[in-house]
Design a protein around this nucleic acid. Structure first.
Lengths: 166, 166
DNA sequence: AAGCAACTATACGCTAGACAACATTCCCCG
DNA sequence: CGGGGAATGTTGTCTAGCGTATAGTTGCTT
């Protein structure tokens, strides 16, 4: 019927990509867990921290993450309860509210980052010599530009920068 | 405090990888949805279809997917209800049971695959010329071998082949 | 033969997130 | 002005899935 459709090189390629993603994700999650953060919370924290004023409107936050607006509401609820974030009313638009990183949130993030970077280096970037790494990154960048054109305009290669409102 | 920690090339690298993954995942999910399959169900179906006899023991299925054993029970329940799978008693070990793909399940899978492959080609492999693609795949393979050593022994580059029992 | 390990299924509670409905607010256009 | 539509955030409802504990069955080892 389908004599080894699964040996198709396209399947292989996606398989590799997804395996690498899964492996890294698992290691990230384990390390973040040591600091009491879920991957989503870490993503929210980094998104906010790298934004001007360490704040973003809820909608923009949703657009930049993999979350829906209601998902953002829930995550921010949790993180506000934990003291990592605060809501602040937007002066110019009373419908909007900002999610703002608190000092506690920033220090929590700072506690995570070194270990996070170390994992990346140990399991990803450090596994390849510089030229091979560049080749991989160039390729990924091209694919990213196709798959997620919004990100191209952004500051750099931010993960899922502007996922939503394309 | 952290003057642009986020421009660290390591962050960039992971960002690219995750963005590509997210973009492809979203497109896969949309296409599978047209065929009434969730990504997990598709994964289960492909796992089974590529196994000898189009069947696997529940435990092995759990090991090869991102699911727990109880999770597999649930998914197989659903898919059995939908007629895509059947449970069959294992002759050699009466504790075990096989999940077997039904003809309906196979044809459902066959209906998905062309579109699935097309997406891969359109958004991933076709975006790079052969040599660049090879470079990316070689790099990913090396990283995969580090991050998920179990997969190396397998038939090829199966996604998450043997994720569980390492 | 007996006890221990493995495999599956199930029930419980729990979390996360999507989707749709909602109230509020803004803004454009008549 | 003023009304309708769009945007924004929140909430209720629903599904999916995990983790744990429990149980029943079977296989294996001693």
């Amino acid at each position: 019927m389908n004599p080894n459709v699964f040996d198709d090189p396209r399947i292989t390629a996606v398989g590799l990509l997804f395996e690498v993603h899964a492996g890294l994700s698992a290691r990230f999650a384990a390390q973040l867990d040591e600091h009491g953060l879920s991957p989503v919370e870490f993503e929210v924290l980094t998104r906010l921290a790298r934004s001007p004023g360490a704040q973003l409107r809820m909608t923009d936050l949703a657009a930049q993450t993999s979350l829906s607006t209601s998902g953002v509401t829930r995550v921010v609820d949790r993180m506000e309860r934990d003291g990592l974030l605060t809501r602040r009313a937007c002066p110019s638009d009373r419908r909007s509210s900002y999610a703002v990183v608190t000092p506690a949130g920033l220090s929590r993030l700072d506690g995570c980052l070194p270990g996070h970077l170390q994992i990346i280096e140990d399991w990803f970037t450090g596994q390849l010599d510089p030229s091979a790494l560049d080749a991989v990154l160039d390729g990924l960048r091209r694919v990213r530009d196709a798959v997620n054109p919004c990100a191209t305009a952004g500051s750099g290669d931010d993960p899922e920068e502007g996922t939503g409102p394309c």
